[in-house]
Nucleic acid binder design. Structure first.
Length: 438
RNA sequence: GGCCCCAUCGUCUAUCGGCUAGGACACAAGCUUUUCAUGCUUGUUAGAGGAGUUCGACUCUCCUUGGGGCUGCCA
């Protein structure tokens, strides 16, 4: 039987999950799901100040939001400290480590434990994404594995945890390549099998530097709060460094799992393109089941303390879904359907209402619309068509739109009027004529 | 400075020696049209530079240039 593949996502719970980090999680998850292996979570909570229960909670929420479910119980690094120290003891006894007086960068002096690097030979490994990697042992310095306060340092904790969690493939950020040469030596010194490695390129900004919060939204939570759909973020991040080999871009989770190939992940850094993410989100919003979109609409409306009574929501969804790029745009882009306290865009008023003759036009429309028998968009459209006599409906359509919605864009005008209903339409036309027209 | 890695449209990318270099985002134009979108059609834009290998190189090799990573008692 083939060895079971076990990968892990090992974030430090700092309260916010960076997109570069979550992309590593995505690739790990996909690799595990594709190969039928296990995706493990290890919380590297050794930084006691930042590792609060709230931070861990936030991390878990981000993973759940993206559908990154993990197998087995979450592993907490702090709980494995005895094992870290056991390993250190073993290294000390075998001569792979030694105690040493040292002064740290920030001026602390004390006795630390150093790992002894081999002094000759070549350390090499086959990186699943970067290919053959090699480095002369002499180019890697000895490094500390236990602080002067007795606490284990990342390098030893990381390796011991990977051994204890039986991790077979370590898929992590590019910034760890240099560490890998060190870690391989630790695995060997401990007599443990060296796992396979795959190093992921970084997500960078327009300047080619690592993408950070200075460049825009950089944490998963920010995208969630901005109204991005988890599947859209997931899909976009996946495409940033991998593709199925054909022109498909919008992929279902099943397709992703079956097509994903770690060996085809790109070596080069990828620039984060918010515009394309936005497009991707629009694709997912369009594909959302109507019921789901409707639920989001209702939720957003009620969140503002408004009621959805009296509005044909299903018909509104038909009109709205195709022109909504972010669920977060609601209810802003359709607020006027649910309240009489909708805002008027000053520019729209200026251009479409505050003109000579518009008042008469609107009042005339009130007259004509009130005679329409069935309040259906076709009938309303016919009414205006009669007025325009085939010369274009602009002179009527634009003022009506601004009068009833306060804005210049939105669903088809007559669909909009149908949704608003006769009473509200007539009142809004009359009120706007009074309030904004000369 | 030292070590490691990388290099196709503005961006994400296809190409695994045969290329009139394809797709997507963005941008522009057109169609549809009452607006904004959607949808459809079309267009502009790419192989960093130089050697070599080869019948043939974007694809392989080397150099140069440019970019990035690492060089902690951070992870």
């Amino acid at each position: 039987m083939a060895e079971e593949i076990r990968v892990r996502f090992a974030p430090s719970p700092t309260g916010k999950v960076h997109i570069g980090n979550i992309r590593a999680a995505i690739y790990n998850w996909l690799y595990a799901r594709h190969t039928g292996g296990r995706f493990l979570l290890r919380v590297e909570d050794t930084d006691l100040e930042r590792s609060t229960p709230e931070a861990i909670q936030a991390l878990m929420e981000c993973m759940e939001w993206l559908g990154l479910d993990y197998d087995e119980e979450a592993f907490y690094q702090t709980k494995n400290k005895p094992r870290h120290m056991e390993a250190v003891e073993k290294l000390l006894q075998s001569g792979h480590a030694y105690r040493c007086e040292r002064t740290s960068r920030d001026g602390r002096t004390g006795e630390v434990v150093m790992f002894r690097m081999p002094k000759e030979g070549v350390i090499e490994f086959d990186d699943i994404v970067k290919g053959r990697m090699a480095k002369k042992a002499e180019d890697v310095q000895d490094f500390a594995i236990v602080r002067s306060d007795g606490s284990p340092i990342f390098h030893i904790a990381n390796v011991v945890d990977d051994i204890d969690q039986k991790v077979t493939h370590i898929i992590r950020g590019d910034d760890h390549v240099e560490n890998t040469f060190k870690h391989i030596c630790i695995f060997k010194a401990l007599g443990a099998p060296v796992p396979r490695y795959g190093h992921l390129s970084m997500i960078v900004n327009a300047q080619g530097k690592p993408y950070s919060k200075r460049d825009g939204a950089a944490f998963v939570g920010e995208f969630r709060d901005a109204g991005y759909l988890p599947e859209a973020l997931f899909n976009y991040l996946l495409l940033l460094g991998w593709n199925p080999g054909d022109d498909r871009e919008v992929l279902s989770r099943e397709e992703m799992v079956s097509l994903f190939d770690l060996g085809k992940v790109h070596v080069t850094a990828a620039k984060f393109d918010m515009k394309k993410l936005q497009w991707m989100n629009g694709e997912y919003v369009k594909r959302l089941p109507k019921a789901e979109f409707k639920a989001a609409l209702v939720k957003s409306v009620e969140a503002e303390g408004l009621k959805t009574d009296g509005v044909d929501l299903d018909y509104l969804v038909d009109q709205l879904q195709v022109r909504t790029k972010f669920l977060g745009d609601m209810p802003g882009n359709c607020r006027y359907f649910f309240t009489e306290e909708y805002e008027f865009d000053p520019k729209a008023v200026e251009k479409r209402l505050a003109r000579e003759g518009v008042k008469a036009t609107l009042l005339d429309l009130v007259e004509r619309f009130s005679k329409v028998e069935a309040w259906k968009c076709e009938n309303l459209e016919n009414t205006v068509k009669e007025l325009s006599q085939g010369n274009g409906m602009g002179p009527w359509v634009h003022p009506i739109r601004v009068a009833v919605s306060g804005r210049t864009e939105g669903p088809g005008l007559f669909e909009m009027l149908q949704l608003l209903g006769r009473e509200r339409t007539l009142k809004r036309l009359a009120d706007a004529a009074e309030k904004y027209c000369p």
